[in-house]
Design a protein around this nucleic acid. Structure first.
Length: 463
RNA sequence: GGCUCGGUGGCAGAGUGGUUAUGUAGGGGCCUGCAAAGCCUUGCACAGCGGUUCGAUUCCGCUCCGAGCCUCCA
């Protein structure tokens, strides 16, 4: 059997994927903090992980995919205060919208979607273990992880403690023993959201929730831990430290997760998305303008670790490509999808085995479909099979081609009217009255209806 | 300042020590009354400078440029 090779941030290497338990592959992806609409960068993480999961599911009998919702955090508190909405209402609202928007992009719900606030007990438990193992200490109501006590700290992100201190631009809080120590628990006096703990009313630090939730939902160690590249430091570095130290596995970083999988950033028109530039692309807006599948293919059009420059142009390019694939499927409407051994062509699927090289797969798919004209039935069956099967993994091409291309569906104009106009036009054409015929065609186009004269008569689609 | 990662044709984007993907846009053509779709065809691409090599876009070094992280961020 071919083996999947994926890039492991831990070690910064391409590695063969060998599941801990082949009967149940376990993946945890750091999900969104729900204080506002998700942007296209959040979507890239969700789509890339969805692809990974779909592919893994073709390789292993069972895959458990956990992706959390962080529903307690300073940004959430700030948004709640600013908008005068209770935290719970705010987080529930944006959790719902997140799931809806991702679903438009073809992202399947994770098997488990834990919420941080449901795991406070586990977090407190983890902190107690860390204190007990001398990796954490309490000071002024804060509990901090003592970074110098964890000698492998920095292995994931490839930085050492000294560099970090020199490069640090942050003021060191007085309750820290060491400038690199990070907060596990902090005081949270009313009216801020707080939970009872051995260290008083407080709330968890940022990194703790993922350590608690992943351990509780998947068990340790699990196979893949993923997220956006910006989470490598400090978020994932800290997660590793917390979890490994809590279980006294500080020499074995893989006792938490074996593979660390990170996707690259999305830039917008060549610039980083940022509030100050005001160029944040929200999925919620994009789905109003483009089909989810187009956005999804666009997100997969670059290799997942490369930066992706989000422009109108690439959306258009991917939209065109998708139309062409659907047109091919339409041409193959009467052909069965069939391939020998029920397998995707090797040269196509190999791209996925090779660290999810989606652009390579797309290129191979194009080459395959280009041969359709002088293809025999068997080849046509194979082409259709490959398109649909890759489509399943990519999360595209599963719709009815006619529906996708808009055949027989009108938005602005009544179908009978269209049919009547087409009839009139064909009448005019018969009489070589081409001016009239062209006028009718233009009129329909204005209404968003495009007609095509085929050997089997005139057909139309809404564009 | 430190640590990463990149610079491929108008644009997007893989890949490779020698045969120069793929898509899209553009040019030319076929088909069509015209369109649409499709098909054919076309394009001095691998940042610069050195080095290794019979040969480098691919390996090494340096330079320039860009991005990310080091602070909340997917």
């Amino acid at each position: 059997m071919k083996t999947l090779r994926i890039h492991n941030t831990l070690g910064n290497n391409l590695e063969e994927f060998k599941p801990i338990d082949p009967l149940n592959v376990r993946v945890y992806a750091c999900g969104p903090t729900v204080y506002y609409y998700a942007h296209i960068g959040n979507a890239r993480m969700a789509v890339v992980n969805d692809l990974l999961i779909r592919f893994l599911k073709t390789l292993y009998p069972k895959v458990t995919y956990v992706s959390n919702i962080t529903d307690i955090d300073d940004k959430i508190i700030a948004a709640s205060q600013k908008n005068k909405i209770p935290i719970k209402e705010l987080t529930e609202k944006y959790t719902k919208i997140y799931n809806e928007d991702m679903s438009v992009l073809g992202v399947k719900q994770p098997d488990i979607q834990p919420k941080a606030t449901d795991y406070i007990k586990e977090m407190i438990n983890l902190i107690e273990k860390l204190i007990e193992n001398n990796f954490a200490y309490e000071k002024d109501g804060h509990v901090l992880f003592h970074v110098p006590s964890f000698k492998n700290y920095g292995m994931l992100s490839g930085r050492n403690r000294d560099e970090q201190i020199t490069g640090s631009r942050v003021e060191v809080a007085p309750y820290k023993k060491d400038p690199t120590d990070f907060v596990l628990w902090k005081p949270s006096p009313s009216p801020l959201p707080g939970w009872e703990s051995p260290w008083g009313l407080g709330r968890p630090g940022w990194h703790l929730e993922c350590s608690a939730m992943s351990e509780k939902t998947l068990g340790l160690p699990f196979d893949i831990h993923s997220g956006g590249a910006d989470l490598i430091f400090p978020h994932h570095e800290n997660e590793i430290a917390q979890t490994c130290a809590a279980h006294k596995n500080n020499d074995d970083l893989k006792s938490f997760a074996k593979y660390w999988f990170h996707n690259g950033f999305v830039n917008v028109e060549g610039e980083k998305m940022s509030k100050s530039i005001g160029n944040i692309k929200l999925v919620h807006d994009l789905v109003k303008e483009y089909k989810g599948e187009v956005l999804r293919l666009t997100l997969l059009s670059a290799h997942y670790r490369q930066p992706l420059n989000w422009t109108r142009d690439i959306i258009k390019q991917n939209s065109t490509m998708l139309d062409r694939f659907y047109r091919t499927l339409k041409d193959l409407e009467k052909v069965d999808a069939y391939a020998e051994k029920n397998e995707i062509e090797e040269r196509i699927i190999n791209g996925l085995y090779d660290d999810l090289n989606t652009p390579k797969v797309i290129a191979e798919l194009n080459m395959l479909t280009n041969g359709i004209n002088n293809a025999d039935v068997k080849t046509k069956q194979k082409i259709k099979f490959n398109l649909l099967e890759i489509g399943k993994i990519f999360g595209i091409l599963q719709k009815n081609p006619d529906t996708w291309l808009g055949y027989g569906q009108s938005k602005n104009i009544n179908q009978d009217t269209i049919e009547r106009l087409i009839k009139d036009r064909n009448e005019a054409r018969r009489n070589k009255n081409f001016d009239t015929a062209d006028e009718i065609r233009k009129k329909l186009k204005k209404e968003g209806v495009e007609i095509e004269d085929t050997s089997e008569g005139t057909i139309w689609r809404s564009i």
